[in-house]
Design a protein around this nucleic acid. Structure first.
Lengths: 248, 248
DNA sequence: CGAAAGTTTGAGGGGAATCAATGTGGGTGG
DNA sequence: CCACCCACATTGATTCCCCTCAAACTTTCG
């Protein structure tokens, strides 16, 4: 019996996601459960972690949505990742001596904290679980690479579609998506910061997607009307996420 | 006494780089040395690993330069990373079930191969070394994020300068740079694929950098004429790499 | 109900792309 | 040892995707 509702839900979501990849023995599951110490809430707009700090805990998302981002001197912002339920949002901070980016809450957010000593203990005692956690950070890197490809070599329209595809599949992995929709509770300006385009152009591109009848986005919910169509526009190949679906 | 010249040089470069971050005990150094089995050569243009494959060894660069890249259906290419001496180029392949990108040689390249069983053995026996290797993949991810910021939110000129800064610092970490220069043996077209701009625009932007007298690039060698100037144009903050300079 | 935040629309401009041609240096074969 | 070739670098002309600035509209919420 767990400490509280979101607390347990987050850990079970993580376990479920890792299990898609490889079997997690009961002792490893328990090791994860006992490494979590408490949950914590943030309001929309709060920073969970700020750049250049050295956190002593890592956070697992229990509910809500957060973004990693960097600010450039001229005030421009680039979001480098979105994270949802079951994502270990700053496992990087466990090993990096300073965080190279900030993390902020896009909505109300609940996280579960894992003290770094507890994580270090896991790496000392559970090699297989350690590899699984390592893997989860490698998936973050794989997603970064997909964003690089999208931002570097495709149009605003493709980038937008690609991001929707990625979020749809990832939401589905943790049970947050329906057959054809998923929550996406952010503003167009935040989306612009993720895609490397201007808010105005996000708006115009969304209109175009709407006009092509491939998707809708109202009230923080994206509805996929034409899944093959969105994938095609976004040049989306889920292989890079698919690894979570298979066993080694 | 080692097996051969480049073979040893690569492993010692890796050890040196990891040591900058945290002390590596002799037994861990030996574990690394004995995990390497052989070296292998590639000609410029060869693929070391192709997308969607599941390699059974990971490669450490002993000499030369390689690029990770993705091809989009329309033929466009995006390079997502450059790697040099001492970089563990596809440690990702150790845990990912399929590689999400290809890796090709930009020059003649020598690598040292580490069988995945040997790496798995390290994770079972050497938790601290495992964390160090994990860290090295987190650094790759940190560099991806910097590229995202550069490509998403800065001009072609800044991106170019930023990349030169990064390569200069990284080459310095493994002893490949002089006080004010480093090897950069690639073509303008390859550079364009890394920066997400066209080859023509790379050429024009290089001319502008030359005109501002901040750097030169001839014969595969980049010479920094005005280090503060390049950093300023590239909005470069080495903090994200600096982690390798410090101890925890 | 008013204020703030977010979305939408319009007009005009610019950074970078594309297309196409020319220049250049290093390697190869006759 | 020079003519040729090929890959790469450079330049010019034109086009366009997206940006910026600015204002109006809409939705949310205290």
């Amino acid at each position: 019996m767990g400490i509280s509702e979101p607390f347990d839900a987050a850990i079970e979501a993580l376990i479920r996601r890792l299990s898609l990849r490889d079997h997690l023995p009961e002792d490893e599951r328990n090791a994860l459960r006992s490494a979590a110490v408490r949950s914590r809430n943030f309001a929309a707009g709060d920073d969970l972690v700020v750049q250049n700090s050295k956190p002593s805990v890592s956070m697992l998302i229990a509910s809500g949505m957060v973004a990693r981002y960097n600010i450039i001197d001229d005030g421009a912002r680039q979001i480098t990742a979105f994270h949802i339920l079951g994502d270990f949002v700053d496992l990087h901070g466990f090993l990096l001596s300073r965080l190279d980016h900030s993390i902020s809450a896009l909505t109300e957010v609940t996280v579960v904290e894992f003290p770094h000593e507890a994580l270090e203990h896991i790496t000392e005692q559970y090699p297989h679980l350690t590899r699984m956690l390592w893997l989860s950070t490698l998936l973050d890197a794989a997603i970064h690479r997909q964003w690089l490809v999208a931002i570097g070599r495709t149009s605003a329209m493709s980038r937008l579609a690609h991001l929707f595809c990625e979020q749809f599949v990832r939401a589905g992995l943790v049970g947050l998506a329906t057959q054809d929709s998923f929550p996406f509770p952010i503003t167009q300006a935040q989306l612009a910061d993720a895609l490397g385009i201007s808010p105005v152009h996000v708006n115009r591109t969304l209109q175009e997607l709407r006009a092509r009848a491939v998707l809708e986005w109202h009230g923080g919910i994206v509805s996929i009307l034409d899944w093959p169509g969105v994938q095609s526009i976004g040049k989306f190949d889920e292989a890079f996420l698919d690894i979570e679906h298979r066993r080694r």
